[in-house]
């Protein structure tokens, strides 16, 4: 099966290829992700217990306190950060977090086309995301 290529808006330059971790729900980094181990800890969240480390983290947008931006920086310092961030619509908290942490980030991508486990190639300079499906659908 051919990889799917989607075009988005460049937020933070960089490129990588890694496995996707997809959330249908927004993520709050303050209180929602544990800076000590990179695991999602928000109660009732669909990804609760999953670790964001080395994943291409896909979610609609962030929410919650602006202190959340600092959590992304802290994750990078501890080698627990995602390899890249893909959003449907970027919000200030995640954008600022990705800038200070220097995590490649792109938005205006239809994240419904990505499933957890897909292999995703992100090239922010070109503004594209290439998705190789984990399984034939």
């Amino acid at each position: 099966m051919q990889p799917i290529t989607l075009k988005g808006r460049r937020i933070v330059e960089g490129q990588c290829k890694a496995e996707a971790l997809v959330s249908k729900k927004p993520i709050s980094f303050l209180g929602g992700v544990d800076p000590a181990d990179g695991k999602i800890i928000e109660k009732g969240h669909e990804l609760c217990g999953e670790c964001v480390k080395d994943k291409v983290l896909c979610f609609p947008h962030g929410h919650g306190s602006t202190v959340g931006s600092y959590v992304l920086y802290s994750l990078v310092k501890k080698n627990l950060a995602p390899k890249a961030i893909i959003n449907q619509t970027a919000d200030p908290v995640v954008v600022v977090g990705a800038i200070i942490a220097n995590i490649p980030m792109i938005d205006q991508i239809d994240i419904k086309q990505i499933e957890t486990g897909d292999l995703v190639e992100v090239n922010v300079c070109k503004g594209i995301v290439k998705i190789s499906k984990r399984r034939e659908s």
Binding site: L30, P35, V67, Y70, V71, Y73, S74, I100
Partner: peptide, 8 residues
């Protein structure tokens, strides 16, 4: 803030 921002 908690501990996370102190690094930055």
């Amino acid at each position: 803030l908690g501990d996370a921002p102190i690094d930055f």
